[in-house]
Nucleic acid binder design. Structure first.
Lengths: 343, 343
DNA sequence: ACAGGGACTTAAAGCGCTTTAAAAGATCGC
DNA sequence: GCGATCTTTTAAAGCGCTTTAAGTCCCTGT
């Protein structure tokens, strides 16, 4: 009993209620609610009185109560991995764009003992009107089941069998741009370091193969995964080759960094002897001393499109599946240059 | 009108209500509520019936409504910068520990157009019972004002003038450990690269000075900030010196990475010629090819203590300020070694 | 003077759940 | 058998805000 009193301090959440503001302004709670949300109706005089009273009491509406009372919740749930820097960028933009569209955002992150399913449940429990899933691992059937409960937007990877909206970069276009950049510089022996299994890695690999074929060049794919270690291993293999390629494209930045590291340790100059291109244009690529040419996925645009997809379903009445494919662009930095003279 | 109908799809949030479960189980909503929360009271038979009904309807409670109805909210607000990897680590643990203590967590992140004050307002609007602020920039008076409204725990930096709980690493102990490690290896000329203004940087600098004094060595502080660029600049200055120090301790990992980069480019071997120590033991430090000896702040412990501080105020009746100082430990990796032979 | 409108205002009914106080049963000693 | 004592169950009162339907008031026009 008396739990609150036991907290011992003054502020037992004596925050003013809507009713307090109403009393002080001498109007009904309905008027206060209308005024504070800028809804039409109240006269200028009422507005003024209410605003003054609210200011006096430094009133702030209880979001939980508002959410519950509103018929529409205007809540967007975002599933993310807080440890993923790319997600961080996306969240930031989602937050902004959602605010612009009049939605609030609830974040739910993966943790060690909180898998995707649990994190999603939290979002559902908040009765989010739509979910934005950043690079979810869920299978297509699982996504489909989720989508039956609430509109979903998957960001960052293709989804085939589920009725969810998708916002993703055109992976092959990105690789294409990288290859053209290298080809324009004069490269022709361009090796690809793979990102392992996983939908994203697969599209990048496919894009590389296709673009090489189109350019009339021979594709060479080295196994790898999306970690620095994988890059180091691949880099060592490359160094051990009889004739080095003149350029390497990696399936993501971390991989590229690993490759570069192996090169530097083996005394192979980048880009003097071999050019390296990464993928993601992560903050890693931008580090002064890494300075990696990379493919930028435009996180802000992805975030904006994701929010808009959700909103157009909720407010725009769209019911058909929407897939937004964004064109990535190459950011040229110091890790690429003209190929070394033949020989 | 008919906003919901206009969304066009089947699921107009026809999710089952508590009342639906009650009806199906043939009991009152009160009983259902009790059963679902595992509260004492209902008989075994009632429990069974309710559970079955809930399962049949795959009922999930509306968190917003629960939150509103509960007298206690059992909600912890966390202020973070989603782009900060260290915060990511902390959040993960906060999430876990809060769950264990029976609290839910609301995340509020800084974004470009959403400063600390705004992010905090969101948290207040959710009527969080306590706030956990990860490395807040707010001034002491601002924190004090906030603390008057709701119990606050500041993580990661000292706070002097405000009635908030603090959980932070003993910065000087960390530097101390690093110096002892170096001194044990035989180093004596150990330069410190500073982290600029800011409370955290200041304590680390102070710790370095004190530890050097105690060891009877001469302190040397080079200006810097917490970025790679700052590290590169400092590294260049060091390289340009007449006699290189045999070891460098940097105010954080990024700085250390910049220093190492400048060294490598100038042909100075690490740790062959100069040893380097970072601070934070971030994922950066752990990268295979960076492999930086660094000071670990034990994020999990900080997070746990922060949650416990909040909970002990809310549930334990503590009213006096609590400051938890954690002892960081050194993680020795490949960037430190015996000093080069004199000369 | 009075029906017919605007322009505001507000009483009251929720939103979906928790919680309390009281009712209803069950148990038991004498 | 009957009041006392427990154990279960539940009606009903919120939580703090939104929203709708029903008023008020005050003009207009006739």
């Amino acid at each position: 009993m008396c739990v609150k009193a036991c907290t011992g301090s003054e502020s037992v959440d004596q925050r003013p209620r809507l009713a307090d503001v109403a009393a002080r302004a001498g109007v009904s709670t309905a008027s206060v609610s209308l005024v504070l949300r800028g809804a039409p109706g109240p006269s200028a005089e009422t507005r003024e009185r209410v605003l003054a009273a609210a200011a006096d009491l430094s009133y702030r509406a209880d979001r939980t109560a508002s959410l519950l009372a509103r018929r529409r919740r205007h809540l967007l749930g975002v599933l993310l991995d807080v440890r993923n820097p790319f997600h961080a960028e996306l969240v930031e933009e989602v937050q902004i764009e959602a605010g612009r569209a009049g939605y609030e955002v609830v974040l739910s992150t993966l943790t060690r003992d909180r898998d995707e399913a649990r994190a999603l449940e939290t979002l559902l429990d908040f009765r989010c009107e739509a979910l934005i899933l950043l690079g979810p691992d869920a299978s297509d059937p699982a996504l489909d089941e989720l989508a039956a409960q609430v509109p979903c937007v998957v960001v960052g990877r293709p989804v085939a069998g589920a009725d969810v909206d998708v916002v993703r970069p055109a992976e092959d276009v990105g690789v294409d741009a990288a290859l053209h950049h290298l080809i324009d510089l004069g490269h022709s022996r361009i090796t690809f370091v793979d990102g392992g299994r996983g939908a994203v890695a697969a599209t990048r690999r496919r894009g590389y193969r296709r673009a090489m074929r189109r350019a009339g060049l021979v594709a060479e794919v080295l196994p790898g995964d999306h970690t620095e270690e994988g890059g180091v291993r691949a880099g060592r293999r490359i160094v051990a080759e009889h004739v080095l390629p003149t350029a390497v494209v990696a399936s993501n930045d971390r991989l590229a960094v690993g490759v570069m590291d192996a090169f530097v340790r083996a005394g192979v100059d980048v880009p003097g002897q071999v050019s390296v291109v990464g993928y993601d244009d992560s903050t890693l690529a931008r580090l002064a001393h890494i300075d990696l040419t990379s493919i930028n996925q435009d996180a802000p645009a992805q975030a904006r499109n994701a929010v808009q997809a959700a909103v157009s379903r909720l407010d725009g009445g769209r019911t058909r599946r929407l897939e937004t494919v964004l064109v990535p662009h190459l950011v040229v930095r110091g890790s690429t240059g003209k190929p070394r003279p033949a020989g």
